[in-house]
């Protein structure tokens, strides 16, 4: 094929224009998606275990004030009456307190599991539960790698209880109650800023921190980020979990569904037609 000058300029011009257009489209994306995922940074080296966050959380969500004692070695779990708990771990660097609540995954398994989208990842970042949609199947609980959603087994009108990162406050531009109550162990911000802040803390005081941010990669990244003075397992943080998204595990199956739904019926119809023909011939031969 011969390319003369005119065609060359035409093509070059077209490519140039399309590149420029594509670039301007690309540039427009961040502007329209101005809202970034918010998250929380929890620095366990700064937490003093006062449990003010627990109490504030209970009060803000109409749950009973936690009464149980905090003891090292006794694991407290979140429950249908407690969305957030502090635990005390005896570690190689002494006593360390760790908060536990919903991790607000970037790609939450619970939301992917939910057949009514009662669990959903909001564009602001919090993963919330919506009462009017939920049918109480508890598939979110089966799927959540952190075992976060809790179900009110002793209610005739049961709800799912879990931390919602004070979504009602976040949309109003306020910060979650635990971050507001806490001295400086919990901070609220965009996930990107928080990761930068966490990296900065590790870099500035490498002796005080274990060099990993729990939540940066685990389960495909989570909204809650943890800093720890000791290896993460010592704080009961689950390190067996995969570092890629959980919903991705069902992707292959979900993608195969439309193909099977579309391709199998014609195949069956074909077999049906083929065997039917054979049958008529057989009958004729008899």
């Amino acid at each position: 094929m011969r390319i003369d000058r005119r065609i060359f300029f035409k093509t070059a011009g077209l490519i140039g224009v399309s590149l420029a257009v594509a670039k301007s489209f690309g540039a427009a994306v961040p502007e329209s998606n101005e809202i970034e995922f918010r998250g929380m940074l929890y620095d366990s080296t700064r937490c003093i275990g006062c449990r003010a966050c627990e109490k504030a959380c209970a009060k803000a969500h109409g749950l009973p004030e936690p009464q149980d004692e905090l003891k090292a070695g006794v694991l407290r779990k979140t429950s249908e009456t407690q969305r957030s708990v502090i635990n005390n771990y005896e570690t190689s660097k002494g006593e360390v307190f760790v908060k536990n609540q919903c991790m607000h995954c970037n790609e939450p398994a619970c939301a992917a599991a939910c057949l009514t989208e009662a669990m959903c990842k909001t564009k602001e970042g919090p993963v919330i539960w919506r009462e009017d949609k939920c049918m109480g199947c508890r598939y979110c609980m089966v799927s959540c790698p952190f075992d976060v959603p809790k179900f009110e087994y002793h209610s005739a009108n049961p709800k799912i209880q879990k931390c919602d990162m004070c979504y009602d406050r976040v949309v109003k531009g306020e910060i979650p109650v635990c971050a507001e109550t806490c001295g400086d162990a919990i901070i609220f911000g965009t996930r990107r800023e928080l990761i930068a802040e966490a990296r900065k803390r590790i870099a500035e005081n490498p002796n005080d921190y274990f060099d990993q941010i729990y939540g940066e990669d685990v389960a495909g990244g989570t909204g809650w980020l943890y800093l720890s003075p000791v290896p993460l397992e010592e704080l009961g943080l689950n390190t067996r979990l995969q570092n890629t998204s959980y919903p991705a595990l069902t992707k292959g199956f979900l993608y195969s569904v439309p193909s099977v739904d579309v391709l199998l019926p014609p195949l069956l119809l074909g077999i049906y037609a083929a065997t039917k023909d054979k049958q008529t011939k057989d009958d004729e031969n008899e």
């Binding site: 939301a111 599991a113 009514t116 049918m135 109480g136 049961p158």
Partner: peptide, 28 residues
């Protein structure tokens, strides 16, 4: 019997909401 909130069982059928990313939605 196992659904905690069985009165909402119709939700995935009527589109409140269609949780199309859910395996359970397809199974239902």
């Amino acid at each position: 019997l196992d659904l905690g909130r069985p009165w909402n069982v119709i939700n995935p059928m009527i589109g409140n909401n269609f949780g199309t990313s859910s395996v359970l939605f397809l199974v239902a």
